[in-house]
């Protein structure tokens, strides 16, 4: 066993506040598969589930995965991970793997927003919203609830507007009241929706401006899937933004690539055998939990 060929896959798991994601990459760092699912209350069970699903999807078993890095809000609750790395470092790595020249990445998740400055693929500075839900996906969810719409239909509707209404409140709850008063004034839904996107974007761009926005800008996170948000982001920033094909998984992708780098470093340093042992223990724990 000691001389066995190292397994050729590496995984990253991102347990976010709302969604959990898992990505598997191969030795070349190319993505072989990913899954996305809601996080829910039980982080540990969710971690096992996304890992199991991604293995099924790629068609491999856990012992073929040499190294696993967990990240995100729930990263401590991934018992089979070899290492934990913050989502800031992982997002930067993931975004840079897709867009090697990226200088600024804006990520808006379910409950947080972050702005990353990246140079030569490395995270150099960052800011996160540390106060409340303003400028996050939660803001959009509240707006959708208030307007009685589904999140995924909001974007398309907003694109029909050229005159977005102004929503000034910084606080999500006060903004909700503002949306209601705009409705009672008889403002068209399209303009209100466009206004909601501008409001969320303005808060995040304010954060981004503290770090100086340099192109190319990449926009990620669940919110970036929304066409209304992308348009609003380009309007407020005054420059085009790049959106990955699957903007939810950049953190998990970065974690998987960092897992590959870390495993290769361990092999180089001659520590691989120790890791292999830990890996098989984690595997036993993982399969036990599965049953």
């Amino acid at each position: 066993m000691e001389n066995a060929t190292p397994a050729l896959f590496f995984a990253g798991i991102d347990i976010g506040s709302t969604m959990s994601k898992a990505v598997v990459v191969d030795a070349q760092g190319a993505m072989r598969g990913y899954v996305v699912g809601p996080t829910g209350a039980e982080h540990r069970r969710r971690a096992n589930k996304v890992m199991e699903d991604v293995l099924l999807k790629v068609g491999i078993t856990l012992d073929q995965v040499a190294y696993i890095i967990s990240t995100g809000y729930g990263r401590v609750n991934v018992p089979f991970a070899d290492k934990q790395v913050t989502e800031l470092t992982c997002h930067a790595r993931g975004v840079a793997s897709l867009f090697p020249d990226v200088r600024t990445a804006i990520d808006i998740g379910g409950q947080d927003a972050k702005v990353l400055k990246i140079k030569s693929g490395r995270l150099t500075d960052f800011l996160t919203n540390d106060k409340c839900a303003a400028g996050t996906g939660r803001f959009l969810e509240v707006a959708a609830e208030t307007l009685g719409l589904e999140l995924n239909e909001m974007g398309q509707i907003s694109l029909q507007s050229d005159t977005p209404v102004k929503i000034n409140s910084l606080c999500t709850i006060f903004a909700q009241q503002e949306i209601i008063s705009r409705l009672s004034e008889g403002q068209p839904l399209t303009d209100i929706l466009a206004g909601v996107y501008i409001a969320v974007t303005t808060r995040v761009v304010k954060l981004a401006r503290q770090l100086k926005v340099e192109p190319p800008v990449v926009f990620t996170g669940g919110v970036a899937k929304n066409s209304g948000m992308v348009k609003a982001m380009e309007t407020v920033l005054g420059m085009p933004v790049l959106v990955p094909e699957e903007p939810l998984i950049t953190g998990a992708l970065g974690a998987a690539i960092l897992a590959r780098d870390e495993a290769f470093k361990l092999v180089q340093d001659g520590h691989y055998k120790i890791q292999k042992k830990q890996l098989s223990e984690a595997y036993i724990e993982f399969t036990e939990k599965k049953l």
Partner: peptide
């Protein structure tokens, strides 16, 4: 010299959310 700025409200419970930012700073 790289730096990070964090604010807390002088209660032990307010420190936990800061941890990820300090950790990411140390990673850089």
């Amino acid at each position: 010299i790289p730096s990070i700025y964090i604010e807390h409200d002088y209660s032990e419970r307010s420190l936990a959310p800061i941890k990820t930012r300090v950790e990411a700073f140390v990673e850089t």
